[in-house]
Nucleic acid binder design. Structure first.
Lengths: 349, 349
DNA sequence: TCAAAAAATGGTAGCGGTGTCATTTGCGCA
DNA sequence: TGCGCAAATGACACCGCTACCATTTTTTGA
């Protein structure tokens, strides 16, 4: 009970074992699989460990067991709010387990990703989480050699490396644009930034929806490779309305762009939604607060992180996977920024 | 040259040494301090390592050397944008070094913080970054026993544990409120969420500025312990204007609250800034885009992360610290939401 | 009741590096 | 040419824990 808080005299497993009156190997087993011990020893070891304030030496454990208890996580950005939610899910869920998270930032670069994978490879992680489905063949080769369970997140697609959890971004974008079409919008623009493959697939959904309605028009598409920011949303919108003044709706590749577009409309006195409907993607919290509240596509990001860790820990603990592919889906959250189009002149095309 | 990408046959230091024709210990030295070897051996080891695709086993290294090459980072939230910027600074800067980052989330809980510190303590990190200056005595005791350099970030204050980099939040808040006073605002409200100690100090700055102008009024203060969100900003603003209808400015504890307040004003047809000036804190990117653009207090968060790692690596490499306290300061970014007050009736008080 | 199987426990060796100290080599200078 | 010192190199033990296998104890079933 009396706990001399900062134990300076180092406590090794041997000390715990000695105090508990068992062999070191038995004490070791207690920490890995308590059920393998008889009740009496289990209690003795437990109380001995507590009394001495034992903290296992992870380096020694990793060296002896040939595997670390690290889950490597590769994400492309720390700034993007979208990943903050996924990370929360990852950290929250991993906290209960014995695994710790090693986070690395690829900055949307395939080369960085390869480099980081090689570093992880050397660390023999217990599991790996990577973002997206666009790894290079080299990266995939490294991963196949890792000999640990791997979960791809954010997106689902063909040929998962191992397991995968996410949603179809093209389907989601398709549904969002269908929503606008069904509400009577005719000239629906696309604002896209950071046109990485995932963004490209959202664009694909947009294009397919419009092509199906025979309304696709390249002039309505404004994209850039620059990273998404709120101010950039304003710039893209400016571009769009100067090109196509009578555009009546925009589908934005994400919520930051949508918010920037809304602000730009306010600046230019373009009435939203009367003159221009706006739809975003991700449904960040501010979308519901904006004036008017902005329609968006809800993606279950926290859940995605949680699920990824659960799939990983199940696999690491040797449990057969329930499912290799988990489609978390999406939901169109309809708000005031995309009401049914009232202006009958819109039907003139 | 021909690199069989995924080296499966494990390569140990011994193999490298053998190929290079040196003893293992010499090879070991090459990786830690190449200058200790003669040129010829250095080159031999280097090419041998490359040829075999050697990756050091970090666990073995940590076990043998009694120190890991891990920098522990404790932050209170992953969701809060503010920390994303700091983290970017941390990750960007640490990438060049041989240290890796271990991130942990305290969730604004002192108990979590203590628990996490104890875990880190067991890992013998090479360095530690903790957020804020409000650690419990127990937490401070654990840290003092860590025997590694420590940097506190976000805030400066008395009695740093080791090193510290940040700014004075009360000074920053004081300056922001002074700005409003100087522009002629009389009834300046305070919107505060998540009133943790750091938020409290911002409130202190607000209060002191108003007291100095003899204008402090408790009815103008609306706070909650709930986490900051954009929607919450709207709720707090509603509360304030229903209590004090003639409030003419608000100082918001952060930018999310400020944005929510702006949206609420739009909803209620309160003209910003004519009827109500708004000032936020942190200067997130969207503040400049909002309509009207919102005044805020710029804090150098990326720089804070960068500096923390630099101080840490310098100390870990045994260099004497240039400075133990680094005040990164702040800047009031004046925008359209807080123009000089024009309404002369305001002078009636 | 006793043998066989299962569960619990322990002994030994070694994971892949590095600290420590001893030894060898190189080099400047008298 | 030889001496002394610093630089370069090497030998050995051991970091703290776990894999592997051997041994002991308990349980089970005929």
């Amino acid at each position: 009970m009396e706990r001399k808080l900062p134990q300076s005299g180092k406590v090794r497993l041997t000390e715990v074992a000695k105090l508990a009156g068992v062999s070191p190997i038995t004490a070791s087993r207690f920490f890995r699989n308590p059920n393998a011990l008889s009740i009496s020893k289990r209690e003795r070891v437990e109380s001995a460990a507590r009394e001495l304030g034992y903290v296992p030496n992870l380096a020694a454990r990793a060296l002896a067991s040939h595997r670390s208890e690290v889950i490597g996580v590769l994400i492309p950005s720390l700034t993007n709010n979208v990943f903050a939610d996924v990370l929360r899910g990852i950290y929250d869920t991993s906290e209960g387990s014995r695994y710790s998270i090693q986070l690395a930032n690829t900055r949307y670069s395939n080369l960085q990703e390869e480099r980081l994978l090689r570093i992880f490879h050397g660390q023999k992680p217990a599991g790996l989480i990577v973002t997206g489905i666009d790894q290079t063949p080299e990266a995939r080769a490294v991963m196949r050699n890792m000999n640990c369970p791997i979960v791809q997140i954010m997106e689902i697609g063909p040929e998962p490396i191992d397991m995968i959890v996410g949603l179809s971004h093209s389907d989601a974008a398709f549904a969002a644009v269908r929503h606008l079409l069904e509400r009577g919008y005719k000239r629906i623009g696309f604002l896209g930034a950071r046109m990485d493959p995932r963004g490209q697939r959202r664009f694909d959904g947009y294009r397919e929806a419009l092509k199906a309605a025979d309304s696709f028009d390249q002039r309505l598409v404004v994209t850039t490779l620059s990273p998404s920011t709120v101010p950039l949303g304003g710039i893209l919108l400016s571009d769009l309305v100067s090109r196509v003044p009578n555009v009546d709706a925009v589908f934005c590749i994400n919520d930051d762009i949508a918010l920037g577009a809304l602000f730009e409309c306010q600046r230019r006195q373009i009435a939203v939604p009367e003159q221009l409907a706006i739809v975003g993607f991700n449904d960040l919290e501010f979308m519901a607060s904006a004036v008017p509240a902005l329609t968006s596509v809800r993606t279950n990001r926290y859940e995605m992180g949680r699920k990824a860790i659960e799939m990983l820990t199940a696999a690491m603990d040797g449990k057969p996977p329930q499912e290799r592919v988990s489609d978390l889906g999406f939901e169109i959250i309809v708000r005031a920024s995309s009401p049914p189009r009232r202006d009958p002149s819109a039907t003139h095309v």
